[in-house]
Amino acid sequence: MMQQSGSVRPGLKPAPLNTAVAVEMIGVHKWYGDFHVLRDINLRVTKGERIVICGPSGSGKSTMIRCINRLEEHQQGRIVVDGVELTDDVKKVDEIRRDVGMVFQQFNLFPHLTVLENLTLAPVWVRKMPKHDADEIAMHYLNRVKIPEQAAKYPNQLSGGQQQRVAIARALCMNPKIMLFDEPTSSLDPEMVKEVLDTMVQLAHDGMTMLVVTHEMGFARQVANRIVFMDEGQIVEMNAPEPFFANPKHERTKLFLGQILR
């Protein structure tokens, strides 16, 4: 895999070579009824790698990453997450979900709980952590996403950008090995996109394994090790950012980039 030079992206480590595999998808197919949403997806993500997935709407990008924590079931092929294969075994699914954080387009914070309670819920109930320790970790991550002063508020009292940062902090509180982002900035007002992207860039600098579905091509250029372009349920093209943007190979990719980059 080609790497960007350090001068273009200061401080970001290159994708690690020959390290353990975080996510492996082999020949994955999925249908909604008769509709073939995912067609022969093959993708290997190594630990610490940052993948940006883009493509027109309805191309199956969200479905693909939602298969990784089994919010969607695949019907053919194999998905191995951190050495555990996803099957109907509920225990294994729960095990994987504990270690895979997810951030949604619509934030999906729990509106009846305060920000702090949103963050401590899973550590306390899933990881069986004492309340006091969970509070400490929650405040640590709220500091990292730069909104510790909102801890006692309810989600609906925050701006969209703040809510999405809380959602990121909520996922981080489970100390995940992999983070999935499903169009994290698509439902934000333009002036709030940056604060969320900054948080994600910071996460990339910390070496988190990330799979990000987004149309933020600036973000892709800045942090991705690889960009995956999907169309009609297939991976059409996959490359490092520089050659992907400078020299797209496939007609569909050229067309898409032409539309999205003007």
Partner: peptide, 13 residues
């Protein structure tokens, strides 16, 4: 909303 179920599942509940 469905998102509430998904968020709860995604954090491992």
């Amino acid at each position: 909303p469905k998102g509430q179920y998904e968020a709860a599942m995604a954090v491992g509940l």
